[in-house]
Amino acid sequence: MTVVAIATFADEGSYLRARVRAVAEERRIVGEWLPYAATSLGAGDGEQGIRAAAIVIGLIGGAALMAVTIWSAVVAYPFDAGGRPVFSWPAFIPAPVEFGALCAGFAGLVMLFRNARLTRLHHAAFDFDEVARAAQDSFVLALACDMGADANGALALMATAGAAHSRLIGG
């Protein structure tokens, strides 16, 4: 039976020691809650996906509106206004640029929600007191382990790293 060993740490150093040991022992980390982004954990790694999506969708949206504008002005409804050329591309630039920026902003927002998993209204982890305190002043690490010796090993790992409090959940 699988249980979760959850531990609370008072400072970032002891939390990072426990995390490094858990990764070295190939334990599965099922949750990490911190009062701030720990820079040593690679915080901000998901930003590249947001930027890439915003750039690609923004360029596609701008190019699509430019194509529709050119098609409508040149092919579908050509209008000769005083001998001017029908394909007057400088006049077509502002709308696709603005629409591309709108598409990029929307794509960035969608990717932010997806990366942060913000569409979930409730997570069962927030029912535990340790996780509720993590937003204020403690660091919480949760490891998946099997009942018995593996669970005791996970609790010992976190205790030797400096856990202020640890316990098993489930089972």
Rank of each mutant, 00 (worst) to 15 (best):
R19Y: 09
R27N: 02
V68R: 15
D11K: 11
V30T: 09
S88R: 11
S88M: 06
R133L: 11
A95D: 04
E26H: 09
A54L: 10
D129A: 14
R167E: 11
V20E: 00
A151V: 03
L59N: 10
F106H: 04
E130V: 05
M66G: 07
A73W: 05
I29W: 10
V23K: 03
A159N: 10
A38F: 10
A64P: 03
I29F: 12
G153A: 00
H122L: 05
G62K: 08
D129C: 12
L121F: 14
R84A: 10
D45H: 15
A64L: 10
E12K: 07
M111E: 08
F99K: 12
G105P: 08
F139Q: 07
A124F: 07
E12R: 08
A163S: 09
M111I: 00
T39A: 15
R19E: 12
A63K: 03
F113V: 15
T69I: 08
L109T: 02
E130H: 11
F99L: 12
W71Y: 14
A18C: 12
H123P: 02
E25N: 01
I169Q: 09
L157H: 03
A24E: 08
T160Y: 05
V97F: 03
A159P: 06
L59T: 10
A18M: 07
R51H: 13
I169C: 00
A63N: 04
V23L: 04
I29K: 13
D11R: 11
V23S: 06
D129K: 15
L59S: 11
L143E: 09
A116H: 15
L41Y: 06
A52G: 06
L65R: 07
A156L: 06
I6Q: 14
I70M: 05
R114L: 08
A124E: 13
L121C: 11
F99G: 05
D137W: 13
Q48P: 12
